[in-house]
Design a protein around this nucleic acid. Structure first.
Lengths: 151, 151
DNA sequence: TGTTAAATAAGAATGATTCCTTTTTAGGAG
DNA sequence: CTCCTAAAAAGGAATCATTCTTATTTAACA
């Protein structure tokens, strides 16, 4: 999805196109990786000296609800957001250190036995599938990964 | 894994077997579902009037590190813990309302193309696969699910 | 160009989790 | 059985991500 399309979608849903909103969306498109609210805030605050953290939170929330962003949990208590792929449904290899993510054109729901779930009368609302580890760049670097919690 | 085995594992790892610790483990075994720290605390506080929340946090942390518990994120900012299955590796259908979970003997890593990941030089540390929705009991009940966030 | 609902900034409030300090205790040694 | 000590617990303060509140500003339509 292109920036213009995203802005159009926002507009269609009754949201105003503010400069802050544009910055947030275009940053996330440019970076194309999982970012914390703090990350986003940090990158934009240069240009918008009095940007509010709350504005970032509010907007990633909206963008998530509109299915423009996905939220992930690396296990360190911070939400991480990234642009959702447009061409269907992908999952990611996520680097615990740098936060970069590689796409996988793979969804476990394609392989699971849905009859079994139907039989259980379970109504699926969402699912998570993420593989965490270290990307090729970080695997050779030393240092504690940001989101590592095992001692 | 039986209670005795878990206690033995704790001991082997140099942890003391305290009554609080036993209560926490046996509660989680009895309930066999995802519980928040508050849930656990609430159930045990009857018998241990001056149990500390911190004690529950400390212990579920230890138990998670020892691979006795798994932690899940339902998306509402609270960690949820449950006993990990002993006989290998399972994933769960998790009810967003009551927190119960049904086992699935399915792991997406069995279906994924590992060569592709190897080629990317990605080093896997852990993965998440959870399906969220409503269990057969909750699907027919009204009311807002605890962890629902979409408006 | 004026109007108004929506969005923002700023900072306070909340809530889960962690940290700190003091007291208690499990469990091994003697 | 008693002592000793490191580990654990209690209690409460501190932290940190996130959300809320209020006053101010602004996008966007008429």
């Amino acid at each position: 999805m292109k920036l213009q399309e995203i802005l159009a979608k926002l507009k269609d849903c009754g949201y105003k196109i503010t400069p802050q909103r544009q910055e947030i969306v275009s940053l996330l498109m440019r970076e194309n990786r999982h970012m914390t609210v703090e990350d986003i805030y940090g990158k934009i605050a240069d240009r918008y000296p009095n940007l509010s953290l709350d504005t970032v939170y509010r907007n990633v929330g909206i963008l998530e609800r509109l299915n423009i962003l996905t939220k992930s949990d690396f296990g360190d208590g911070k939400g991480r957001y990234r642009i959702k792929e447009s061409d269907g449904h992908r999952h990611h290899l996520i680097c615990l250190k740098c936060g970069c993510s590689e796409e996988m054109d793979f969804c476990p729901l394609d392989y699971i036995d849905h009859r079994e779930i139907k039989d259980k009368n379970f109504s699926i609302k969402k699912h998570n599938f993420e593989i965490f580890g270290y990307c090729s760049e970080c695997v050779q670097k030393e240092g504690q990964p940001v989101a590592e919690r095992n001692k």
